[in-house]
Amino acid sequence: MTPVDYLQFVLAPQVVNGLALGIAVVLVALGLTIIFGMLDVINMSHGEFYAIGAYAALALGAAGVGFWFLLILVPVLMVPLGMVAERLLIRPVFDTKDRHVTTLLVTFGLGLIVEDVLKIIFGANTQRPPTPIPGATEILGIILPNYRIFLILVGVAIVLGVAYVVYKTRLGAMVRAAAFDRNMAASLGVPVSLVYAGTFAFGVSLAGLAGVLLAPIYSVFPTMGRDFILLAFTVVIVGGMGSIWGAVVAGLLLTQVQALASLIISPVWTDPIVFGTMVAFLVFRPQGLFGRLGHA
């Protein structure tokens, strides 16, 4: 293989494809980091909410709802689901001494149930919605499917939108205030309880949106929730809990490490490398790249 061949066929596509995967991971991690960072709640069932989003897209899509409408409809439908889950499962244990562990356990149980329920409703076989934007485009000799280009663009837009809401709006300020000091925020008139439920639902809704967007690429099956969860947690930790920019940087960085490492060593070892990065961060910089939101 000539160096030019290598650059054109191997290295460059590797970087670009890593970018698309990176965006996918960031999309899944976004909701996780918000729930994690602002509520201090570990949502182990985040992957299952992602799966619910994907299945909702599949079912509604089969019923004739257009893809573009699904992008709005599914996240909206996920909001009440998230509200109910927060009210029934998170709220009762929110004030226990070890919130991390208790919420982790409760949502772990929820994940088991959701996975099985999805199997009962939709069957065990893998399904896949049709690619909404078919075809591929060649840019500088690198072939990229149109839907992946779209995914990268939409992903960037979603991240910017979420960051705007969290950092620049009054709503975001209220949420951050409630995360930083609940009593203080309450005394300043922030409806803390509603803000918590809303934040959880927002995170869940983002997971659902990721499900809609990624279903055509990664297909849909009952255990799909487990797919991204370790990587997403890693991204959240490396990026810094609750930090949106941290999640973005960490997501892109880790997937690039994974993509490039797989060129040199057997791809099986990319998981340990990614995990090794997480351990290194936990040990040497537990606050992550960007520190923790609301806890600067």
């Binding site: 293989m1 061949d5 290598y6 191997v10 698309a20 990664y218």
Partner: peptide, 20 residues
């Protein structure tokens, strides 16, 4: 030849080698 991990999400990272 290339061996991808079980449950790989994305196979695109091997496409370069295939094309080349």
């Amino acid at each position: 030849e290339v061996f991808a991990p079980l449950d790989s999400k994305d196979y695109t990272q091997y496409f370069g080698q295939i094309r080349a």
